[in-house]
């Protein structure tokens, strides 16, 4: 009886495997499976049907045929629009990340160096805006930035400008919206890193005659490298595929891959081309994601 019980227990997954298994299964179900479906559609052809694309496999005369259509990928390489849109997205993502870093770093540093009891309050203030739906916050920005909006009216009232400055529907508005929306994702990992720094290092630097400026460049900044990388990745990766903010705040010159994907899907009814665009975008993003993971693994090992 005992033997049987042990045998049965042996069949159950070991605790360790069960713990790893849950997130693994999660990723399989919600990441790999949808990707496989998109990959499948990207090799189909658009059709007037439900769903609006052809099937890859056909069964006729006892033969199973698999038809892979690479035409969608060829189309992407033939028209410069797609490359321009990818580059546009990467450019906006890069500069937004940089701006987030420039704004977020001093914030994170100030919170990390502030009084211990006040830190939760500051952190809460950083996170609080994200409790409101993104769409509403973006609409609020539309109200602020429009030609007779809050900002322009204030500037005119103060006499700084005579005519409203066109901000809404330009790339500047897109940058403002993105930096605003993604700032918490930069501040939080930076804070998590900065708050762990040993303050005796700075004291030692000051004892040895280093100015606080030098101490920052030589000690704080290099030590916070991992926080910078983590924050940058958390901003950069989602911004590349961002659709809502550029759609609402951007103008016609804002060319991003999310919009092109939307057009393929909705205007052209071409789900296969839209899917192949998404596949390429994922492949482009995999490089920074791998770098990010590597860096995180290294950080874990060093502890």
């Amino acid at each position: 009886m005992k033997k049987l019980r042990n045998k049965l227990l042996g069949l159950l997954p070991k605790g360790r495997h069960a713990v790893i298994g849950v997130p693994f299964f999660w990723m399989l179900l919600f990441f790999l499976l949808p990707f496989a479906i998109i990959l499948k559609i990207s090799f189909a052809e658009a059709d007037i049907a439900i769903p609006p694309y052809t099937s890859l496999t056909a069964w006729a005369d006892n033969q199973l045929t698999l038809l892979l259509n690479f035409g969608n990928y060829v189309l992407l390489s033939e028209d410069g629009l797609y490359l321009a849109a990818y580059l546009g997205s990467l450019k906006i993502a890069f500069f937004s990340t940089l701006l987030c870093l420039l704004v977020g770093y001093p914030m994170a540093l100030a919170i990390a160096r502030s009084d211990k009891h006040m830190r939760p309050v500051w952190l809460l203030l950083v996170m609080m805006p994200t409790w409101t739906a993104l769409l509403i916050r973006v609409y609020a920005w539309m109200g602020i930035l429009s030609n007779n909006g809050l900002l322009n009216n204030t500037l005119i009232w103060l006499g700084i400008v005579n005519e409203p400055i066109q901000i809404l529907n330009t790339n500047i508005a897109v940058y403002i919206g993105i930096v605003y929306a993604y700032l918490p994702f930069m501040v939080l990992p930076l804070y998590a890193n900065l708050v762990k720094h040993d303050s005796s290092l700075l004291e030692a630097a000051s004892d040895l005659g280093a100015k606080s400026y030098t101490a920052f460049w030589k000690i704080t900044l290099p030590l916070s490298k991992n926080g910078i990388i983590a924050g940058s990745m958390l901003v950069f990766i989602p911004v590349v595929g961002e659709f809502v903010i550029p759609e609402l705040l951007g103008g016609p010159e804002t060319l991003m891959i999310g919009k092109v994907l939307w057009q393929e899907f909705f205007n052209n009814r071409d789900w296969p081309v839209a899917s192949s665009l998404a596949v390429i975008m994922l492949l482009l993003l995999i490089i920074p994601i791998i770098l990010f993971n590597r860096n995180q693994a290294r950080e874990l090992e060093s502890k």
């Binding site: 410069g80 629009l81 010159e253 060319l255 205007n267 052209n268 071409d270």
Partner: peptide, 19 residues
Amino acid sequence: SAKTQRLLTRSWTKIKSGK
């Protein structure tokens, strides 16, 4: 037709964004 639709969308992108 789907082909013309694609041409129209493409033209439209060019008109709007200059690309």
